[in-house]
């Protein structure tokens, strides 16, 4: 494993405000993520896992603290640019574009993130094949696919963006055991062979056990030392 810190969280605190009520969901989190490593963030519901992922992936800004990519504060890079060039997210609810086919979802993501390949469709089919979807499924509207298949389209879309950090929120939650194993293998390949940083939020102990590092969150705080 290399020691280059690709993502650094410093004193990260985040508070949600609803009317008069303020809920602090993350409290003073500091951590460094490395390239070429596969991380699992675990913890009970409400522990702040998804918020941690949102702030790390540039989907939101922290109330306090700094998120830095390659040593530069995301606010300097610009959240849009960071999401566009350096980070991709697999959402728990997939968040696919429902008026497109599986392949179109992927080519669209490539167009938005500026992936330079002349045969985007071929690349999309290749990635879908990698996550276990055949050509027929690739050309169907995503709403005609099962939850598990949509999950895989979302993963393929994230892979298509060719970014430095891949975030995933419960990526295997809707997948059968065999497919889940295939997805975990892909994450490991991305981290170990393609030198990416993979950060996964999960409840699955099986998935967490495959990670290089496990981060435990409880009530918004990281508890104990990260387990390797």
């Amino acid at each position: 494993m290399t020691s280059t810190p690709v993502l650094r969280l410093s004193g990260l605190t985040h508070t949600y405000t609803g009317g008069r009520r303020r809920t602090t969901v993350l409290k003073d989190i500091t951590y460094e993520f490395q390239r070429g490593a596969f991380y699992a963030v675990v913890g009970p519901s409400g522990s702040g896992k998804t918020t941690l992922l949102s702030l790390s992936s540039g989907l939101d800004t922290p109330t306090k603290g700094v998120v830095a990519f390659d040593g530069t504060d995301l606010r300097e890079i610009g959240l849009d640019r960071y999401r566009n060039k350096h980070a991709a997210t697999v959402f728990q609810q997939y968040n696919l574009l429902t008026y497109m086919t599986a392949a179109q979802n992927i080519t669209t993501a490539m167009e938005i993130t500026g992936v330079r390949t002349r045969r985007k469709k071929d690349r999309a089919l290749e990635l879908l094949d990698r996550v276990g979807l055949d050509r027929h499924q690739a050309t169907r509207n995503v709403l005609q696919l099962s939850g598990g298949q949509q999950q895989r389209v979302a993963i393929a879309r994230a892979l298509a963006c060719d970014v430095d950090i891949l975030f995933a929120d419960e990526p295997t939650g809707n997948l059968d055991e065999d497919t889940a194993k295939g997805i975990i293998d892909i994450f490991q390949e991305l981290a170990h062979d393609e030198h990416k940083c993979v950060i996964v939020v999960t409840h699955s102990q099986h998935l967490a056990d495959q990670a290089d590092q496990i981060l435990n969150l409880r009530k918004g705080r990281m508890t104990g030392a990260p387990r390797s």
Binding site: N84, T89, T113
Partner: peptide, 9 residues
């Protein structure tokens, strides 16, 4: 939201 998350302008 999804398109913004992908970094679309």
């Amino acid at each position: 939201g999804t398109l913004l998350a992908l970094g679309e302008k």
